[in-house]
Design a protein around this nucleic acid. Structure first.
Lengths: 242, 242
DNA sequence: TTGGCAAAACTGGTCTGACCAGTTGGTAAT
DNA sequence: ATTACCAACTGGTCAGACCAGTTTTGCCAA
C-alpha cells in the first residue's frame, strides 16, 4: 500500500484510540516527516486524506488539528427525550439496565482482548478509587470504572453509543449506588463483582470478563427490582450534576 | 481557501454532476496539473482528499478512477462523527456489527417476550417484503425488518440507541446486502436466518430469538471478514439515502 | 521597568525537477 | 505467430527552494 495511505490510517487510528484528543494540535508536517522518515510531500498527502475524511482540519500558519466532531467528544449532552422519561418513569431505568447488560458485557469482552498497557493502567487507577469515597453521594468512581473499560474496548461505535447514554447512565449508576450501597451485603457483593471483573480483564480472559460484566449489571437490575418489590421506595436521583 | 481543496471540490462537483461516470478513468496527474495550471503536488493533494472522501480510487501505474458508488448527495442527515469514520475505515463496519450483535439479540429477545399483536403484524408485514425487491440496490426492506423487531421490544432506550445509529446501520446493512446477496449460498443462508428469527418471535420463544438474531449478525460479520480475507474488495457504500 | 514594534522562527502552501516503480503496448528477434 | 524486451505511459517518493500566514523573541524607546 502507498506510504501516504498507511500513514493516514496510522494517524487516524491514533486519534480514534485517544492518543490525540479533539482540538489538539498535531505535530508539524516537518516534524512528522522527520520522525516517520518520509518526505514532507507524503505527509501532506496523508494529511489531505484525513482532511477528506473530516478527521482533521488544517489552518495556514497554525497547524493541523483533530476535528471537534471526531471521537469521544465531550459535549454531547443531548440524550434528548430520554432524560425526561426517566423522571416519573422508573421503568426507563430497567430498560437502560437491559441495554447496559449487553453493551457492558461486550465492552468487557473486547477490553480483555484488546486493552493496551495504558488502558490497563487507566482501568487499574479507576478500580483503585472505587471504595475510597462516600458511596452515597458520589457515583462518579463507579461510572469511571465502567467507562475506562468501555474505552479499552477500542470500538469507537461502542464508545459513541455509551457516550450518548452517558447522562442517563450516570443517573442509573447513581440510583443503584444510592439504593444498593447502604445495604452492607449488597455493597459487598458489588465490590466482589467489580474486583472479579477487574481481575478477569487484567488476566485477559474475554469470556470471563463478559460473563462477569453481564452478571454484574443483571445483579444490579434484579436487586433494584427486588428492593422495589419489598415496598422500599427507590431513591430517586435527579439531574443535579455540577 | 487552499488551491488543493478548491480543486478537490471542483473535481468532486464534476463527478457528481455526471461529468465523469463511475469506474471512469480520470485524467493523469500530469495532465490535470498542466490544464489547471498548478503543480503536480497540488493535484496529488487534491486527489488524496477525494480518496479520503471515497470519491475516487487510485491504482499505481494505472491511474485514478471514480469510485463505483458515488453519492448524488442529498443532505447530510448527520449522525455526527460516526458517518465520517465509515468512509475509508472498514473497521467501523465491524465495530458496528459487534455492537449490533448484542443489541439486536436483546431486541429479538424482548420482542418475542413483549410484542403486541400489532407489533407482530408489523413484523410480519416487513418480513413478507424481504424478498420481493431487487436485493442489490435496496437494503431498506432488510433494515425495516430489523427495525420492526427493535420497536417491538418496547424498550425505549434500545429504540433510542439503535435509532441514533440508524444511518450508520443503513450503511452496514447496505454493505452486507451488496456484498453477500450476490452470492447465492450466502443469500440462502441469510434468508433462512431471517425466517427462523421471524418464526421464533412469532412463536414467542425469547431465548431462541436472541440466539438466532445474535447468530445472524455474527454470520454477516464473519462472512464479510471472510470475503475480505479472500481478497475480494468489499463494496463500499456511501451515503446515498433516497 | 514597561510598552510596543520589528525581526526571527515557527506554521502550512506551492513549485520544480528529478528519480523510482508498476502497467501497457508495440516492436524486434526468434 | 510467438516471445522477449524496451519505451512510454501511469502513479509514488524525494529534495530543496520559496511564498504566505502566525507566534515568539528580543530589543529599543518611553
Amino acid at each position: 500500500m502507498a506510504i501516504a495511505q498507511e500513514i493516514s490510517f496510522r494517524l487516524e487510528q491514533l486519534i480514534l484510540d485517544g492518543g490525540l484528543a479533539p482540538e489538539q494540535k498535531m505535530p508539524s508536517e516537518r516534524q512528522l516527516a522527520t520522525r516517520l522518515g518520509v518526505s514532507r510531500a507524503v505527509i501532506r498527502e496523508a494529511l489531505h486524506e484525513l482532511q477528506g475524511r473530516g478527521v482533521i482540519e488544517t489552518r495556514h500558519g497554525k497547524g493541523s488539528f483533530v476535528s471537534q466532531i471526531v471521537s469521544t467528544n465531550e459535549e454531547h449532552t443531548d440524550d434528548g427525550p430520554l432524560l425526561h422519561m426517566f423522571n416519573g418513569h422508573p421503568r426507563t431505568l430497567y430498560d437502560l439496565l437491559e441495554v447496559r447488560e449487553q453493551l457492558e458485557g461486550q465492552a468487557a469482552y473486547l477490553a480483555a482482548k484488546r486493552a493496551t498497557p495504558q488502558d490497563l493502567h487507566r482501568i487499574t487507577k479507576a478500580f483503585s478509587k472505587l471504595d475510597q469515597t462516600d458511596p452515597l453521594t458520589n457515583a462518579k468512581p463507579d461510572h469511571n470504572f465502567h467507562q475506562a473499560i468501555v474505552e479499552a474496548s477500542h470500538n469507537p461505535v461502542l464508545v459513541h453509543v455509551l457516550n450518548g447514554l452517558k447522562n442517563l447512565m450516570l443517573l442509573t449508576v447513581q440510583a443503584s449506588v444510592a439504593n444498593l450501597n447502604p445495604r452492607e451485603e449488597m455493597r459487598n457483593k458489588i465490590t466482589t463483582q467489580h474486583r472479579r471483573l477487574y481481575q478477569a480483564i487484567m488476566a485477559r480472559k474475554p469470556e470471563s470478563a463478559k460473563r462477569l460484566a453481564t452478571a454484574h449489571v443483571r445483579f444490579v437490575n434484579e436487586s433494584m427490582k427486588e428492593i422495589e418489590r419489598q415496598g422500599t421506595k427507590i431513591i430517586r436521583v435527579s439531574l443535579d450534576r455540577a
